[in-house]
C-alpha cells in the first residue's frame, strides 16, 4: 500500500514540477523609454517588450544577496555588468532587429526576456 502511495505522490510531484517550473505564463510588460527591473530571485518584470531602433533604458536594482545574481549578461547586446546590492545599474540598449533576446545572470541560471517589436 505504502508503495502505491509513494508512487502516486511521486507522479503528482513530477506533474507539479513540470507545471510549476516549465509551464508558467510570462507576463509581458510593454516599455516605452525606461523600465525598472528588480533583481530578487529572478527578474521582475521578467519579460519586457521594447520598440525596435529606439534607445531603451533598463534600470536593474538587485535586492537579493545571492551571489549568482551579482552579474547581469545581455549577451546579444554585448553587455555584462556587475549589480552591486541595492544600487541601481542602468544599461541602455538600442535593438536594431525585432526578435526575442534572453538575458541572464553571470552563471546563466536566472533568465529574463526582452521582446523587441
Amino acid at each position: 500500500m505504502d508503495k502505491i502511495i509513494v508512487t502516486a505522490l511521486g507522479f503528482i510531484g513530477i506533474i507539479f514540477t513540470v507545471w510549476f517550473f516549465l509551464m508558467k505564463k510570462e507576463k509581458q510588460v510593454t516599455v516605452v523609454d525606461e523600465v525598472d527591473i528588480t533583481v530578487n530571485g529572478g527578474y521582475s518584470p521578467e519579460v519586457i517588450s521594447i520598440p525596435v531602433g529606439k534607445i531603451t533604458k533598463i534600470n536593474f536594482l538587485r535586492t537579493d544577496p545571492t551571489d549568482c545574481l551579482g552579474e547581469i549578461v545581455l549577451g546579444d547586446f554585448k553587455i555584462k555588468k556587475e549589480l552591486p546590492l541595492n544600487q541601481k545599474v542602468t544599461v541602455e540598449i538600442k535593438p536594431e532587429k525585432a526578435g526575442e533576446y534572453v538575458y541572464s545572470c553571470g552563471m546563466n541560471m536566472y533568465h529574463g526576456k526582452i521582446i523587441v517589436k
Binding site: F20, K24, N40, S44, P65, D67, C68, Y110
Partner: peptide, 19 residues
C-alpha cells in the same frame, strides 16, 4: 542560510537554481 535566501525568492518567480 544563503541557500534558502536564494531559493525562496526564486520559487516566487517559479524558477529554480543550484541553491
Amino acid at each position: 542560510w544563503g541557500f534558502y535566501q536564494a531559493t525562496i525568492p526564486a520559487l516566487r518567480h517559479r524558477t529554480a537554481n543550484m541553491d
